[in-house]
């Protein structure tokens, strides 16, 4: 697993808007292949590196040059954790849609959309703040010392 350096916080916000749009399209169309692609994207960002996020590149080349520079930086660990939470919901959603359990697919995609939208609109990372609660239910989240 690569270690990412801190990032301009507006990049992840842009990325979260894109994720919100993708998840909304999935809910409206039930197009599970798109959700599968999003699942792979979540996995790459969470388990390999945030640099693999194509929206990050779009932000850096097309949007960041037009914005006022900022010295504010956000640590990568919370962002990668959030991608991991997104991965779990997107994976359940993909499996749901692909196996005909459409309701399960919709519910899981809906949860992922709620988290992505809160992140995009308010900069709020639900999974990060609720890490203590998540860890209580998923002991595997505990990191080795």
């Amino acid at each position: 697993m690569l270690k990412d350096s801190p990032v301009d916080p507006r990049g992840p916000r842009f990325s979260a808007w894109m994720t919100t749009v993708i998840l909304a399209i999935v809910l409206l169309t039930g197009w599970w292949r798109l959700l599968a692609a999003q699942t792979v994207l979540f996995a790459m960002c969470a388990f390999i590196s945030l640099k693999l996020n194509p929206w990050g590149h779009v932000y850096r080349y097309a949007i960041q040059p037009r914005l006022t520079p900022t010295t504010e930086r956000e640590e990568a660990a919370p962002l990668r954790f959030a991608q991991g939470v997104g991965f779990v919901f997107a994976l359940i959603g993909t499996l749901g849609y692909a196996t005909g359990l459409t309701t399960l697919g919709m519910v899981a995609t809906g949860f992922a959309l709620v988290a992505a939208l809160l992140n995009a609109a308010l900069g709020l990372c639900l999974g990060c703040e609720m890490y203590l609660v998540l860890r209580r239910f998923v002991p595997a989240l505990a990191r080795p010392q």
Binding site: L27, L28, T29, G30, T109, G110, L113, L117, L118
Partner: peptide, 16 residues
């Protein structure tokens, strides 16, 4: 799907 989307938007708004 439309209802699911509206539901998700409402939940996000409420949590926010």
């Amino acid at each position: 799907g439309v209802w699911a989307l509206l539901g998700a938007l409402a939940v996000a708004g409420a949590i926010g």
